[in-house]
Design a protein around this nucleic acid. Structure first.
Length: 444
RNA sequence: GCACGGGUAGCUCAGUUGGUUAGAGCAGCGGUUUGUGGAACCGAAGGUCGACAGUUCGAAUCUGUCCCCGUGUACCA
């Protein structure tokens, strides 16, 4: 043994994984309880599936490699690859295929769960995050699609967003299909490149996207992206098609008709909505926030969409011969919470305990007596959990934002009363023990 | 993946053209009246300067490789 070094374990977290503190968690709880209420209201069933699936079940099996594709966290278990789920839709398809004879048809379910993506994290983008997902499986009725849009709006507004804080955009895969016909483009590669370029309009603007449709584009850092090599006439055709504010597609028109029946108005037809590449087959939806979101250093960041979805009519059929249509929508809850935290008029009250100071350990029994009284009255409370002088105890109480501390030292015990100090005002008063809980309730 | 910028104390950062004992603020610890917090004072402590290799009499500082973080970009079911 030559150089036996003391190895300190790192305190850093893997990239894209975050500790989450109380404020964020409370807002998250608030969001989740709103979601549950609305989902019940809309008649959805609640479902949970495991974090791990067989890699092949969630569509990540690459037959020519012995390792699953990047993008998922995987490990090999007894010769079979397992992966952490990367969304809740793939597990739903698996669930439906597995339980096909049990479930009602159509099947409406919602799910809340953590998903993992093994990719480069960015501002507001993590590798572990909470997703909400609602789907209709087994119906081609576009009322399902329409209801999903209405429902997602209702969720956002119930969580405190105003109508103009977000934009719900709808389009359809049929729009781009038609466009490619018009352009006479058949190469699959070129189609994909064009779709990817169009997907960036929101972020980069038309001028930059135009470069991506043509030769290519150099970004701020000097990195170069190859374009789709369209000619000027073709780009012009796309530009004109995108300007078309009135949808021509049957499915979008139908959905808008249904929106009208629901008296739902807060949506926009936007043909530049692309989302995913091969997965969707019909109408697609996306929700973007309209207010600025900042990172931890106060810098405004590109926030992207907080949710979206669409119709995917052949996902379930991958598991067998079932031809089974579906449509779904999902929200990235952590991102929504992150944004909500920055809405200036948004705050949730956190409950902090009343603290009983420790003067003398011999009086612990008396302290506990008071503590029990408070806790029985449902008042969050604690005996100072550390060791040390009063000053230190006060500093602690201040740090945890306790609304008040109780002094119950020798003098007070003798008199049968306690001293209650309001930590916001600094006021202090002597109170008979019988009146204590009432006095404290006034203070919190 | 590609491009650019960073890794110095628990945290935020300073560190001149390479020069010997690497600095500050905050936090923490100990005091300043052993019963009173929300930026009071004093003191001590705290670092293989991201890792490894190289150049040099001498490296936090220069070179190379790697790792990690940030931002943009690409990919993204």
């Amino acid at each position: 043994m030559e150089k036996e070094k003391k190895i300190k374990p790192t305190k850093e977290l893997p990239a894209g994984f975050e500790d989450r503190q109380e404020k964020e968690l409370l807002i998250r709880d608030f969001v989740i309880s709103n979601i549950k209420e609305i989902m019940i209201n809309y008649g959805f069933q609640y479902l949970e599936t495991p974090s791990f699936e067989y890699t092949e079940s969630i569509g990540k099996f690459l037959p020519d490699k012995d390792r699953p594709g990047e993008g998922v966290f995987s490990f090999k278990d007894e010769n079979k690859w397992l992966s952490l789920r990367y969304d809740l839709t793939a597990p739903l398809a698996r669930y439906v295929a597995k339980n096909f004879n049990k479930i009602p048809k159509p099947f409406k379910r919602y799910q809340l769960g953590t998903v993992w993506r093994n990719e480069k994290p960015g501002p507001g983008r993590y590798r572990e995050f909470l997703q909400f997902d609602a789907d209709y499986v087994g119906t081609k009725n576009l009322q399902a699609d329409a209801e999903l849009c209405i429902l997602i709006s209702e969720i956002l507004e119930k969580c405190g967003l105003d109508k103009d804080d977000y934009t719900l955009k709808i389009s359809s895969r049929k729009f781009t299909e038609k466009l490619f016909e018009k352009l006479n483009i058949k190469s699959k590669d070129q189609v994909l490149t064009i779709l990817r370029a169009l997907d960036k309009i929101e972020r980069l603007g038309w001028d930059e996207v135009q470069k991506l449709l043509g030769k290519g584009r150099k970004d701020k850092s000097g990195d170069y992206t190859k374009g789709a090599n369209l000619n000027i006439e073709q780009i012009k055709i796309i530009e004109n098609a995108l300007k078309n504010e009135t949808p021509e597609n049957d499915d979008v028109l139908e959905i808008i008709k249904i929106f009208n029946a629901y008296n739902f108005k807060n949506f926009k037809f936007d043909p530049s909505v692309i989302r995913g590449l091969e997965y969707y087959t019909g109408p697609i939806f996306e929700v973007n926030l309209n207010f600025e979101v900042k990172n931890s250093k106060g810098k405004a960041i590109q926030f992207g969409s907080i949710g979206g979805g669409g119709r995917y009519d052949n996902l379930v059929s991958n598991f067998g011969n079932l031809d089974y249509p579906a449509t779904g929508i999902s929200i990235g809850l952590d991102r929504l919470v992150f944004a909500l935290m920055q809405k200036k008029d948004f705050s949730l009250k956190t409950v902090r305990p009343i603290m009983i100071c420790v003067f003398n350990k011999n009086n612990t029994n008396q302290y506990i007596e008071i503590l029990n009284k408070l806790r029985k009255a449902n008042i969050s409370s604690e005996i100072y959990p550390g060791e040390g002088k009063l000053k230190k105890q006060m500093e602690y109480a201040n740090k945890i934002e306790s609304p008040g501390v109780i002094f119950y030292g020798e003098d007070e015990i003798k008199k049968g009363e306690v001293k209650l100090r309001n930590l916001k005002t600094g006021d202090e008063s002597s109170i008979k023990i019988e009146n204590l809980t009432n006095e404290i309730k006034k203070l919190i």
